[in-house]
Amino acid sequence: MNTQVSLDIQVMLETQGLCKYWGGLKALDGVSLQFYDKQLHGIVGPNGAGKSTLLNLLCGHYKPTHGRIMHKGEAIEAIKPHAFARRGIGRSFQKTNIYPGASCLENCCVAVQRRMGGNFNLLRSRYSQKVLDEIASDALDKVGLGARRDQIAAQISYGEQRQLEIAMVLATAPQVLLLDEPMAGMGHEESQLIIELLNRLKREYCIVLVEHDMDAVFELSDQLTVMVDGQHLTTGTVSQVRDNPRVKEAYLGQGDEVF
């Protein structure tokens, strides 16, 4: 579980004093974190700790109340929501967010087409480019949904829909993957598949993983952050975090014996 922090490791994404207030509620309160390329950064914390809020800020879904978001050294908190994805910041949501009425392949095709160009081509058939279908198919194969290719997304199981969402994010060819509880509601076998997948992917992408399944997070994380009540409690390697007395306290305080 040790990370060799070599010199060529690159900060992909960084937050500086990031805050998000909902009226008086401080969902996120001055969080500063660094996410490295080719590493998986786990984020854990009790319900309402602000984990989803953090991801929603990182992907441009919400605008921060205060603070900065840096992507490869550039401040991006003010850019338009769709521009985040164009910079290679891909996102899966805690609540399944797909096109339920379309086939699994079509779901991924929408994701692929954006970077293939011709999105304003009014007459060219959407089925005219073989490569597009192939890339979309590959993304489905990667998450183990190859057999569901032509099925309508609404008709596959809940766990499979979660997998589909990851496939859609992969199909956008991102550099950063923001995954919000991708394994929630999955069966054991499906989770195992995703864990294997993430283990492979984390060597290629910068991954931020919010997850309740502690075994999975411990197994996967290069860096681990604990959040409580919108605040950053600690960040470090898995063993550092496990041994941190404040973490035990915070979790025991919640009556949640996970460690």
Partner: peptide, 19 residues
């Protein structure tokens, strides 16, 4: 068309399409 694909996507799930 390709444009139509995006229009369908927006109709079904605008938030996803932005993301």
């Amino acid at each position: 068309s390709r444009f139509g694909r995006v229009v369908d996507a927006i109709h079904e799930n605008p938030g996803r399409t932005t993301a």
